[in-house]
Design a protein around this nucleic acid. Structure first.
Length: 271
DNA sequence: CCGGCCACCTGCGGGC
DNA sequence: TGCCCGCAGGTGGCCG
């Protein structure tokens, strides 16, 4: 479910309520998520102060004095702040209860979420250490995309969704960015000029920033951390618009499966 | 190193 | 009404 803008929206929504709070206890109702949640999680977190919250790609990082809680929402996960009296329902897998009465609750029907504990003394988490650049950092630009694409003949859509290249570009924003840049999603990554990579990098940044400003995309079930829907779906140019006419040229939007994922584009605007 | 494919899991909508 | 199929926002891992 959540792409980078959704995770960022979630982070910004949660942060003011939780930073500086002390963990009272942790309840794990379903430990079998993408990876099995460590049995020691309650012992690791209890009585610790949440020092800071941040994001790396689509991972959420909760910083405690002795380590980091690494979370990922997978396809269908969401986090909510509730009060301690709220009854748990189906797919409410983890509660982190704080002494201020707030509870951070993870809900995830498909169970692709990740919740893991990583002690401070260790090097970077195994799921984080291989990640590429942040798209909203200074390290991300057309030169970078061009340079790393030299020996990559995959479709450019797969290339920009590759975590080792750049993090946080998921299926929706990959289609949206390529449309904005005028690049056909099936074009080989190594067959795109430096100038067009500059355009693509700018498009990715613009699309992500716009989505963050709009509070994340609303698809079927995205609800941000305060329980209100985001509004970016109203701004989608191609995603989910198969058979409808292109807002730019009125040609019919096409879709095809690239790298096992549905991909949307305008064959007239994108080359 | 690279590309392609699979698995993990549940819910939902459409077609019959 | 009910069943079956395909599809859904992610991504690590395996194989050739």
């Amino acid at each position: 479910m959540p792409e980078l803008p959704e995770v960022e929206t979630c982070l910004q929504g949660l942060k003011p309520h939780l930073v500086d709070a002390t963990v009272k206890h942790v309840v794990v109702r379903q430990a079998k998520l993408r990876y099995t949640i460590p049995e020691t999680l309650n012992e690791c977190l209890s009585n610790q102060i949440l020092v800071d919250m941040s994001r790396r790609g689509k991972y959420l990082l909760l910083q405690f004095p002795s380590g980091q809680l690494v979370m990922h929402l997978g396809m269908s996960g969401h986090l909510r702040i509730i009060d301690a009296a709220t009854q748990a329902s189906k797919h409410d897998h983890v509660d982190i209860a704080f002494t201020n009465g707030r509870v951070l609750r993870l809900h995830d029907p498909r169970r692709f979420s990740v919740v893991d504990w990583w002690p401070t003394k260790q090097a970077s988490h195994r799921l984080l250490c291989h990640l590429g650049v942040e798209p909203l950092s200074d390290d991300f630009n057309g030169d970078y995309l061009y340079r790393l694409a030299r020996r990559r003949k995959v479709a450019v859509k797969n290339y920009i969704m590759d975590n080792k290249v750049v993090v946080g570009v998921g299926n929706i924003y990959a289609s949206e960015s390529l449309f904005r840049a005028g690049i056909h999603p099936k074009r080989h990554a190594n067959a795109i000029s430096l100038n067009r990579y500059h355009r693509l990098a700018e498009a990715i940044v613009a699309v992500l920033k716009k989505a963050i400003e709009s509070g994340g995309t609303t698809l079927k079930d995205f609800i941000n951390s305060e329980g209100k829907p985001g509004y970016f779906s109203q701004q989608l140019q191609v995603y989910g618009r198969t058979g409808l006419s292109c807002y730019s040229c009125q040609a019919i939007i096409k879709s095809s499966v690239i790298g096992q994922r549905n991909t949307f584009y305008c064959a007239s605007c994108q080359h």
